[in-house]
Amino acid sequence: MAEVSVTEQERPDRDRADDAVIATRGLTKRYRGGQLAVDGLDLTVPAGSVFGFLGPNGSGKTTTIRMLMGLIEPTSGSARVLGLPMPRASRAVLPRVGALIEGPALYGFLSGRDNLLRYDAADPTADPRTRRERVAAALDRVGLAAAGGKKAKAYSLGMKQRLGLAAALLQPRRLLVLDEPTNGLDPQGMREIRSLVRELASDGTTVFLSSHLLDEIEQVCTHAAVMAQGRLITQGAVADLAAGARGRLVVTTPDAGEAARVLKEQGAADVVVDGDRVTAEPPERDLAEVNAALVAARVRVRGFGLERASLEDAFVALTGEGFDVAG
C-alpha cells in the first residue's frame, strides 16, 4: 500500500525528509538466531504529530523503538532521529528525547523521587542545580507529587507507569517515545495520560506512541503506522487510514429478509442478515433513495445509518487478520 503523505499536502514548500522527526530508510534488524525482527522499514514521523505505532505483539515495534533509541544496532539501513543519524549521534539526540520503553524500570529500593534523581544524573545535559525542582515538577505533572517519597517497590503498576512517564518529562523534549504508556492504568489514569499526551503535543512536542489499543490511537493520534511481521504495512494520517476502509450501511428492521432483497436490488454488495440487523457495503447512489426504496417496499425501518469505519476495520482490511494475532 502506498504511503499517505499528509505533510506534503499540507506544507508543499518543505522537503519531507527535513520535516521528519524520525526517518528510517530500509531499517532492518536480524537477530543472531536468524530471526528477522524488522524488515526494510521506511518510517517517517512528521514533526508536531502524535504518531501512533500499531501492530500485534511480536511485529517488531519494540525492536524498532530500540533501534531508534540507539540500544540496538541495525543490521542494515539507517535511522535518523531529530535529523541526526542514530545510534552515532546518541549523545546529541537523546537528551532531547524522552522515552518510555517496554514499561517502566525502577530501582525498587529507592523512592520515586530518588529514581528520578538518578535518571536525571545520567543525562549529561541536565543541570544539577535545577535537578530537584525539575524532578518535583515531573512528579507533579504525572500526579505522583504525594507519593514521591515512597519506595518504588511499593508502587502499583499504574504508579510505576506514571513514574516512568515522569522520567521522560524531566527535561523539555522535542520528541517523546512512549511504548504502551497506558499499560496497567485504570480508566481514569488512561484518560489522564491521554490528556497529558495531548497537552504535550499542543506544546509542539512530537509524540511517538506505540499501542495495541486501537481506540487509544484513534483518540489521540494524528498519524499512524501499522506493522505486521516486521514490515511496515501502511503509514499516514489517521483519518486517511480509516477512510481507506469503507463504512457499512446498517439497517435495523423486523423485516430483515425483505430489506436484504431491496438492498441488493439497490446495488448494495456483501449483504449480511443478522437477526433484525442487515448490514451491507453501501451502494454508490444517494442513501436517502435507498431508504426511500426500503420504505416503498413496505419494509418497517427502525434504524438506518452508516457505521463509520474504525481503525480496527482498517487494520483488519490491511492485515487480513485479527489484531491480537501474534506475527
Binding site: 530500540r66 533509541m69 540507539g70 540500544l71 546518541s90 549523545r91 520503553i101 517496554e102 524500570a105 535518571y119
Partner: peptide, 9 residues
C-alpha cells in the same frame, strides 16, 4: 536501558 537513553553513554 533508561540510563543509556538518558543518555549516560
Amino acid at each position: 536501558r533508561y540510563l543509556l537513553v538518558a543518555p549516560a553513554g
